[in-house]
Design a protein around this nucleic acid. Structure first.
Length: 329
DNA sequence: CAATCGTGGCC
DNA sequence: TGGCCAAGATT
């Protein structure tokens, strides 16, 4: 393994960050740990540009964990909108509840207590600890892994799954710090966000902008001629999957102020014709109408619809009451 | 541990 | 056009 000049890397990448970082609201000095935490939940597998407007609305409505915890979880799911992976909304609400009841309403500042929160895994705990509380811990996300894989490993992409070697490398690359040395601590924190930003803006998965890279001269991947990935990423099928059906059902529930008849949610147009049953009101305007037509347009067998609906119930994303199906309360 | 879980933009 | 990808977590 090459042994890069760490102080040089640290200087160049943090300097690059200082003049190239995006101005994101959760990076403002005034941003609270809660604001950062909300952003981290939303950013799990979702691009910044789609998170921004939802985050703004979310923080305006629920500026504290207690505010969110006081509202029904279904409101969180609805406000989550089209960010995707709505279980994250469930978990963020659940985390807000724990913070309110067990942490005095304050986002905990230690990694282990963060890890204990619903929806907070290794990355998110480290990110909140580092970015919100200035704890110089090892942060490893997909951007950082990719930068490391290229810069040090000479590979086009990191391994499909994070492994111990990557963690060790991240640990080795992190600027040394000690509680007594505020300057060193600051550098370690700056390094984490700077490498992540470099991966997001320059060292991207596809078509990396190497000419804008502050450490191109030291990049092992460049040095070996930018070889192709040594494996082919596994696809994420969508059309025809249960996930697609779940998504369509969730869209309907998000746009329904009243409980939805189970048969409507699970029905297909053909069936409605046969039974003479009117499915959903077809004259709804805008998104609500589109949610219904999208759901009914899916070529899903009734068994698949049943399966998708059952998984929504199992996840707690939908509740079935005497009056119909709705988002959880 | 490999599978599962949304959504939309991009090349 | 369609496969690839995005600040992962959970089981």
């Amino acid at each position: 393994m090459p042994h890069p000049e760490l102080p040089l890397l640290h200087r160049e990448i943090t300097a690059w960050y200082a003049s190239n970082a995006r101005q994101l609201p959760w990076r403002e000095e005034s941003a609270t740990p809660w604001a950062l935490m909300v952003s981290e939940f939303m950013l799990q597998q979702t691009p910044v540009v789609r998170v921004l407007p939802v985050w703004e609305a979310w923080m305006k409505r629920w500026p504290t964990p207690a505010a969110l915890a006081a509202d029904p979880v279904g409101e969180a799911v609805k406000a989550w909108g089209r960010l995707g992976y709505p279980r994250r909304a469930l978990r963020l609400h659940a985390a807000a509840l724990v913070i309110t009841t067990e942490h005095g309403g304050k986002v905990p500042g230690s990694e282990d207590r963060l890890l204990a929160l619903p929806g907070v895994g290794t990355y998110t705990a480290a990110a909140i600890a580092c970015f919100a509380f200035g704890i110089p811990t090892v942060v490893v996300d997909t951007n950082i892994r990719r930068v490391h894989a290229r810069l040090v490993g000479g590979k086009a992409l990191p391994e499909p799954n994070q492994n111990a070697a990557e963690l060790a490398l991240a640990q080795r690359l992190l600027p040394e710090s000690s509680p007594a040395d505020a300057t060193a601590t600051k550098l370690a924190n700056a390094w984490n966000i700077a490498v992540m930003e470099l991966g997001a803006l320059v060292c991207t998965a596809r078509a990396p902008r190497c000419h804008g890279c502050p450490v191109m001269q030291q990049c092992a991947w460049i040095a070996v001629g930018r070889p192709e990935p040594h494996y082919k990423p596994k696809g994420q099928p969508w059309h025809g999957t249960d996930r697609q059906v779940r998504g369509a059902m969730m869209a309907v529930l998000r746009h329904s102020e009243a409980p939805v008849d189970r048969a409507d949610l699970l029905g297909v147009p053909d069936l409605a014709v046969d039974t003479g049953r009117r499915l959903n009101p077809a004259r709804e305007a805008g998104e609500r109408h589109r949610a219904w037509t999208d759901l009914h347009a899916l070529p899903a067998a009734s068994e698949q619809r049943e399966r998708a609906f059952a998984s929504l119930l199992a996840d707690g994303l939908a509740k079935q009451g005497a009056d119909g199906v709705s988002l959880p309360r």
